[in-house]
Amino acid sequence: MSALLAIRDSLMGERGLQRWAFYIPVVFMALFFAAPVALTLVWSVFERTMFWMEPGFTLAAYENFFTSARAENYVYSMIHSAVAVVVSFVIGFPIAVFVRRRVVKAAQHRVILLFILPFMISELVRVFAMRPVLGRNGLLNTGLMELGIISEPITIILFSPIGVVIGDVISFLPFMVFAGFLAMEAVQTYIFEVCDDIGVGRARTFRDIIVPLAAPGIFAGGVFIFVNSLGVALVPTILGGPGAVNAGLIVNQAIVALDFPLAMAISAIMLLTLVVLLYVGHRLFDLTKILQPIS
């Protein structure tokens, strides 16, 4: 009888099933996120068959990647992504600083909330919307020509690497604002008053105080933008010129061509890039600091 009660308790009591319910997210994420992501490495060395693949060990996919134009394209798209990160930092981070430093405390979150609105509109729509804006007859060109600033339409801003960078920045800029602000929130505003008191100039405060203190947030925002610029196929598909690719698009093309080991090899390379970046960033800046406001 007591054994039955013990079983009932272990299933229903506060130490039983109810408690196990809290493990659902971990199990789900382990099963459908961590496992497939980790297995990319395994599948990347499988043998390719006509329509599928079979277990084995071959580096053919990697060889295929590194000896074709794909590796070169991958490097180019890394450069474009890095440019997108820098541009987003230059445009977006000052917003986080301004809001934290100059806006009344009670209004700070509301200003940041403004950036949720564009962020929550489909990336598809936002990227797509750049076409009628940046195109030869687009809003920007007709506007500038109307104003007499240019006489010929600027064509370098669409279907080109510049177009891709613009698309990445438009897509992911809000994340730099969010992550930057999150990091700035851990900085007591007294610190800025100390700087005013000592007479630290604007540039010096930025370099000596703000950037070091917000480094974890800047880094997290930067990695997010870098990885997504590298991996979201939509942007080069819609805004890039002929032959414009990034890692995501190469993977997509490999899937369409039913070359699954190749797709997985490129995914694995990308994910390793991500892991290395995060690891280095964590060693340098202790990324757990970003979580301070919520722990």
Binding site: Y190, I191, E193, V194, D196, D197, I198, V200, D208, L213
Partner: peptide, 29 residues
């Protein structure tokens, strides 16, 4: 502004530069 006045302020708390050691904090000005 504060830096052009003959005053300087000690704040309630948490006003040290958290990324600098004691010597750097004191010497920063």
């Amino acid at each position: 502004p504060p830096n052009q006045r003959p005053t300087t302020m000690v704040f309630q708390s948490y006003a040290l530069f958290p990324h600098m050691n004691v010597e750097k904090n004191v010497g920063y000005g």
